[in-house]
Design a protein around this nucleic acid. Structure first.
Lengths: 197, 197
DNA sequence: CGATTCTTTGAAAACAGTCAATCTGTGTGG
DNA sequence: CCACACAGATTGACTGTTTTCAAAGAATCG
């Protein structure tokens, strides 16, 4: 895991052995079995988290226990609750693993401190913020798409890798529809050959 | 306008007269009358833009010309198209003024150059990215809310300042429903005293 | 293979959308 | 100052899509 983590950094920024020596001590590797939680509603999120292996889901539950999945994060993606982190307030979100996963955590104060010392790390953080923002706009676009079949089409074009990997009922929740609707939409699109099986 | 702009900076970061002398030359003030465009679909967005006065709307149009409003930005908010900016691709968005507005533009290369020279400016940019991310998560939350009345309730709680300021049919588009639906929802909520008139 | 979990299908109900007409308020020009 | 035009908001009747509820089929895993 540590090796994969190192590999991720190397692929993003030039990093010296010395710098690596500074980063390593603040890293907290965490293994999550399928179904285990990274963050529970009501807790305060205080980390920077990078997914090394597996798949992590973020969702929000309403009073009746119905959930809306906000995103899926796989290898090399960043996860966490920005809002809880920035404002030190209890999270309204739940984050869990939908596959056996490994995640690298860093306490945010320590990470920020390092960012001030290592311009490259700061650069990485900045790029990452921009990427997250970009993805989040894509998410808004998806969520504001009106019809169910456009949503599914758009998802299957933009996230073919997730289509294979994530149970359909979770995709339905992500797209804001019931599993029954998704099943019907899919059937129709396959019949019209507008989407791959 | 320049004074208000200066005031915005002062309220966010400590900034010396010298630093200000470096920032000012790259600033491009732009006045927009109600209905005028800041960005049209198909253009590439190359700026950092801060709204000084007025209200700026970002929307996306589909083939049939129906529009989905993605956000409203008022005084001291940042606007633009991150995706177009980062990837130098034509924008799918349109940005226009729904009130007479003033906006301060800075070319992104010049702004980035200054950020490298002025740590405080970099800090401001970073904070701003985090704020944008946070707001964008809030937007996702709204967009993924299922029922029309919950959407309106949540909007009227979180953005009372916009409720007063923005025509109802635009709020409807922002909330992903028709003006007729919004009118009915509102009527119901006012009757049940769940929302202020 | 049994049990659980996930997906599919059907029928009825609920909800938001569409279309069309009316109402309301604001600003403009006579 | 009034009348008119116009943009926006409301209301009603109808249509269409998605949800809900229920049950039956697949698929996966110990």
């Amino acid at each position: 895991m540590l090796q994969k983590f190192r590999h991720y950094f190397d692929s993003k920024i030039p990093i010296t052995a010395d710098e690596w020596e500074m980063i390593m001590p603040i890293c907290i590797p965490k293994e999550l079995k399928k179904g285990e939680f990274l963050l529970k509603e009501g807790e305060i999120w205080r980390y920077v988290a990078i997914v090394i292996e597996g798949c992590i889901r973020t969702y929000r539950a309403d009073r009746e226990g119905k959930i809306r999945i906000l995103n899926f994060v796989i290898e090399n993606g960043w996860t966490g609750d920005t809002h809880s982190l920035q404002n030190s307030v209890p999270s309204v979100l739940t984050i869990d693993a939908i596959e056996n996963s490994s995640v690298m955590l860093m306490k945010v104060e320590e990470f920020d401190r390092l960012c001030r010392q290592l311009p490259h790390l700061n650069q990485l953080m900045n790029d990452n913020l921009k990427t997250c923002l970009s993805e989040s706009y894509e998410r808004i676009d998806l969520a504001t798409t009106v019809t169910a079949d456009e949503k599914y089409r758009s998802f299957s074009i933009n996230h073919p890798e997730l289509l294979l990997r994530i149970p359909q009922y979770m995709i339905a929740s992500y797209l804001g529809m019931t599993p029954e609707s998704l099943s019907r939409v899919k059937k129709k699109l396959v019949k019209d050959q507008l989407v791959l099986t």
